[in-house]
């Protein structure tokens, strides 16, 4: 029976020597001390290398200090002057030009971020809808699609630069020689160059949108569709009232990530178009770099940086609020 082995086996309590537990080692390391010990390196480093510089640049943004000319000098406070200049309230000609430039660069950034995120979202979600099933080589496809977003942005930009060349570029060869379209001067035409940036970014990040959409789609419980089938719901109804509400929160998170990343795009603009032609691809990050390290207007650059920061925080908050709203409803 179940207990036969136990009742006859009495050697354990006979031998009960009651070995006393040893004193626990590292007794001095109480939970409180340990949490302090574990947290402080991370918090200190972040404080010194992320937060301290930020405060410093806030201070600089209220001065007209320049890293080149004024090294060693005490920064001269100028109040909100730099902010005024950046926002187009300047009085002198150069100041007015800066205001116009900042507005233009914000517009350029918008012209890049908006189409990029929208195309990636639609394309990625569409692909996911189509590919949301089991098929041969699914794992391989997923792995291949992960590669672009892991690659060095500088190299991606380099390679698109080569492929987009008017004369020897393979893209133009395909468009012109194979499909009979016009040769497109991707990188040297004002209206088109920004689309070269969009194209490269779409190549890199559409898979990201697709993979997130797929994760979202596969998380929709099957019984919801089965219930809708029982009710003879149309395909559109199922999409509109089951699929979309279930994947929207995840998609919004993806949009948040992509917007934040696209907003700070730098490497590709630097390598692929170099801001040209005629400054038509100088996105904000790139412009800020030029003001800070080409014109050496450190104070002004800090102010522009803060304006950039405020814009992205506002934008992110808007999106996060939307995400939370939807999460609360669900």
């Amino acid at each position: 029976m179940v207990n036969s082995g136990l009742t006859q086996n009495n050697q354990l309590d006979k031998e009960h020597s009651g070995d006393k537990p040893l004193r626990v080692r590292f007794r001095w390391l109480t939970d409180n001390r340990m949490s302090f010990l574990f947290l402080s390196p991370t918090m200190l480093l972040l404080l010194f290398i992320a937060i301290f510089p930020l405060i410093w640049s806030l201070r600089l943004s209220f001065t007209d200090w320049s890293v080149i000319g004024d090294a060693g000098k005490i920064p001269e406070p100028v109040g909100f002057h730099s902010y005024g200049t950046a926002l187009g309230l300047g009085e002198t000609r150069t100041e007015k030009r800066v205001g116009v430039e900042v507005a233009e660069r914000f517009a350029i950034t918008g012209q890049f971020v908006l189409p990029t995120v929208i195309i990636e979202l639609l394309l990625g979600f569409g692909l996911a809808m189509l590919l949301n099933r089991k098929f041969l080589g699914r794992g391989l496809l997923m792995t291949v699609m992960l590669i672009p977003m892991m690659l060095t942005p500088v190299i991606v930009a380099l390679y698109w630069k080569y492929m987009l060349r008017t004369d020897i570029g393979v893209i133009n060869y395909l468009i012109h020689d194979i499909f009979g379209g016009p040769r497109i001067d991707w990188l040297n035409q004002i209206k088109i160059a920004i689309w070269a940036l969009v194209l490269a970014d779409v190549w890199m990040w559409t898979p990201f949108m697709m993979l997130i959409s797929l994760a979202g789609l596969s998380a929709v419980p099957k019984y919801l569709y089965e219930a809708a089938d029982v009710d003879q719901a149309s395909a559109w109804f199922k999409f509109r009232h089951i699929t979309l509400p279930m994947v929207t929160p995840l998609l919004l998170i993806a949009v948040l990530f992509r917007t934040m990343d696209a907003y700070r795009l730098f490497d590709q603009a630097w390598v692929l178009t170099g801001g040209g032609p005629g400054g038509s691809t100088e996105v904000m990050s790139f412009y800020l770099y030029l003001v800070a390290f080409k014109d050496f207007e450190t104070g002004l650059a800090s102010a522009i940086g803060y304006i950039m920061l405020i814009v992205i925080i506002a934008l992110a908050n808007l999106l996060i609020r939307k995400i939370n709203e939807i999460a609360d409803e669900g």
Partner: peptide
Amino acid sequence: TRMLPPVVVLIPVFL
């Protein structure tokens, strides 16, 4: 700290 556009901290970090 991850939300910051890197270029914004670039100036003070450089200094």
